[in-house]
């Protein structure tokens, strides 16, 4: 679904409870079309290959992209907001299909190493698997320049995970927040690497930005995209009042 300019949104069904029950968990994916030379695309948070509800998440993403005339083979870069499998899981599979470069926040690399090393066996015995991820580069606070003239600001937004990053596109006023903030809610802080205090500080930092499109990592029974500066400001206020006290 085209959002604005070259920005596309691929929301995982879950705006209603029946949808959540049917489709299970996966993240929303976003795409900036033709951001790189040779009209290659930038994909943010590709989600999983398959999820716990045995939904073929990657097949669905590919099919939704094709409806917009976008081929998975033309993805040139995958940016992951954090190292949770429901966000980065399909990265290596897409790399095989397209040869895309893969990136993630530097601070989540330790979590990936732990998940792939000492913790891997224990996690597997619990019935989960952490998909492989071999980043080509890490993202740190600063400027990400793409192609001739596209600039994104990479922000360190820890809280949901230690190395969580968010991507702000100032020209289009688009903010891709991963699992930092949702419509009327925030990311969990009870997963290893999570921190309530960091999450609050990250949200306050983001609240200073001029955002027209706030793109969240999940729908979780609410809209995945919040549009309009007033709506977005209202969402920050609501979270400060009703969520922060319980974090």
């Amino acid at each position: 679904m085209n959002l604005v300019d070259n920005f596309y949104a691929y929301l995982w069904p879950g705006e209603t409870m029946p949808e959540m029950q049917t489709y299970g968990n996966n993240c929303n994916s976003y795409l900036v079309a033709k951001a790189l030379p040779e009209d290659k695309h930038v994909l943010v948070d590709p989600g999983m290959v398959t999820n716990e509800a045995r939904q073929n998440c990657l097949d669905r993403l590919i099919s939704e992209m094709e409806k917009d005339g976008i081929k998975i083979g033309d993805v040139g870069l995958i940016l992951n907001t954090h190292a949770h499998p429901d966000h980065y899981g399909a990265s290596e599979a897409i790399r095989k299909m397209s040869g895309a470069q893969v990136a993630i926040g530097r601070g989540d690399d330790d979590f990936l190493k732990l998940a792939g090393g000492a913790m891997a066996q224990a996690i597997k015995e619990m019935g989960f698997e952490f998909p492989e991820l071999n980043p080509d580069f890490y993202l740190t606070e600063g400027e990400l320049r793409l192609g001739q003239d596209l600039v994104a600001r990479i922000m360190l937004t820890p809280g949901h995970s230690q190395g969580h990053i968010a991507i702000y596109w100032p020209d289009a006023k688009v903010f891709m927040g991963g699992d930092l903030i949702f419509h009327g809610s925030t990311g969990r802080v009870d997963i290893p690497g999570g921190s309530a205090q960091s999450l609050k500080e990250s949200i306050e930092q983001v609240a200073q930005l001029e955002i027209e499109y706030l793109l969240t990592g999940h729908q979780y029974g609410s809209p995945g995209i919040i549009v309009g500066q007033e709506e977005i400001k209202h969402n920050f206020d609501l979270i400060r009042r009703h969520i922060f006290p319980y974090l």
Binding site: L77, A103, E141, G142, G147, A152
Partner: peptide, 8 residues
Amino acid sequence: MGISGSAV
């Protein structure tokens, strides 16, 4: 590949 900047 057109990817650069201080965040990289």
